[in-house]
C-alpha cells in the first residue's frame, strides 16, 4: 500500500544504518593515519603494514584458521549424523536426552560451556592447548550443524529415499547416493557456520586453551582491553572483508541455483 511507502523506507534506512554504521566506521578508521582512532587525520595503509609485520598476530591467525578448519570438519560430520538420527530414526530410548543435549548448547551461555569443558580437561588430566580448543569448538558447533542439516532433511522428499530403496539400494547406498547429495547445500552451510563460530569464539577458547595456543579472538581481546587501536581496526577490517567475500560468494551461488531451478 503506497501510503506506507515512506515510513517503510525510513524504517529500513534507520534499521540498516544502526546495523552497519559501526562496521563501516570501524573499516574507515582502519585507514586513519593517526593512532588516535577517533580523529581523522588522513588516509594511510600504515596499520595494515604494521599488522603484516606483527608475528604474534600472524601466528594467532594461523592457529585460529587451523582450529576452525578442523573443528568445523568434526562438527559437520557429527552434526550430520545427529541430524540423520533425529530426522530418520523416529523414536528411540533416551531420545529426549539426546535432543536436549543437541539444543541446549545453542542458547547456553558460553561461560558455562567453557567452564565445564575446562573442568573436564583438568579432571582427566588432558594438557590444554590446540586440541582441547578443537574439541570444545567441535562440541558446540556440532549442535548448530545438526540443526541446519536437520532442517534440510526434514524438508526433503522422503519418497526419493524410498524410491532408491525400492530400486534395491541398501541404507548406506541410499544415504551416500540420495540423502547426502540432496542435503549437500545444508552440509556446506553447516561447515561454514561451524567454521565462523570457531573463528569468532573467545570465551570457550579462553577456557580451553593453554600456553602456546592463543587464538586470534584471544589476541584481539587482550589488545582491545588496553583500548582502541588502529591495528585492531585493520585486523578487524580484514576479517570483515573475508566474511563479506564469503557471504557474497554464497549469495551468488544461491542466486544461480535458484535461477537454474
Amino acid at each position: 500500500m503506497s501510503a506506507w511507502r515512506v515510513p517503510r523506507l525510513a524504517t529500513l534506512l534507520v534499521g540498516f544504518a544502526f546495523l552497519y554504521a559501526p562496521i563501516v566506521l570501524l573499516v574507515v578508521y582502519s585507514f586513519n593515519a593517526s593512532r588516535l582512532a577517533t580523529v581523522w587525520t588522513g588516509f594511510s595503509t600504515h596499520w595494515y603494514a604494521a599488522l603484516l609485520a606483527d608475528e604474534q598476530m600472524r601466528g594467532s591467525a594461523l592457529i585460529s584458521l587451523e582450529v576452525a578448519a578442523l573443528s568445523a570438519a568434526i562438527a559437520t560430520v557429527l552434526g550430520a549424523l545427529a541430524a540423520l538420527a533425529l530426522e530418520r530414526f523416529g523414536g528411540f530410548r533416551t531420545r529426549s536426552v539426546f535432543v536436549a543435549a543437541i539444543y541446549a548448547p545453542l542458547v547456553m551461555p558460553e561461560v558455562i560451556l567453557g567452564l565445564s569443558l575446562l573442568l573436564l580437561f583438568v579432571a582427566i588430566g588432558a594438557p590444554r592447548g590446540f586440541w582441547t580448543i578443537v574439541a570444545g569448538h567441535a562440541t558446540f558447533s556440532m549442535c548448530f550443524a545438526a540443526v541446519v542439516i536437520r532442517a534440510r532433511l526434514a524438508g526433503a522428499d522422503r519418497s526419493l529415499e524410498e524410491a532408491a530403496m525400492d530400486l534395491g539400494a541398501g541404507p548406506v547406498a541410499t544415504f551416500m547416493r540420495i540423502t547426502l547429495p540432496l542435503a549437500m547445500p545444508a552440509v556446506i552451510s553447516a561447515y561454514m557456520l561451524a567454521f565462523i563460530l570457531s573463528m569468532d569464539d573467545l570465551v570457550i577458547a579462553s577456557f580451553t586453551s593453554g600456553p602456546g595456543a592463543t587464538t586470534l579472538p584471544m589476541r584481539i581481546y587482550s589488545a582491545v582491553r588496553l583500548g582502541v587501536s588502529p591495528e585492531i581496526n585493520a585486523i578487524s577490517s580484514l576479517l570483515l572483508g573475508a566474511v563479506g567475500v564469503a557471504l557474497l560468494i554464497g549469495a551468488v551461488a544461491q542466486a544461480r541455483r535458484t535461477n537454474a531451478a
Partner: peptide, 15 residues
C-alpha cells in the same frame, strides 16, 4: 552481521 565476529562488532562500539 551475525556471520561477522561478535568481538569485532562490540569493539566497534568502543570507538
Amino acid at each position: 552481521p551475525f556471520w561477522t565476529s561478535f568481538l569485532i562488532r562490540v569493539y566497534a562500539w568502543i570507538a
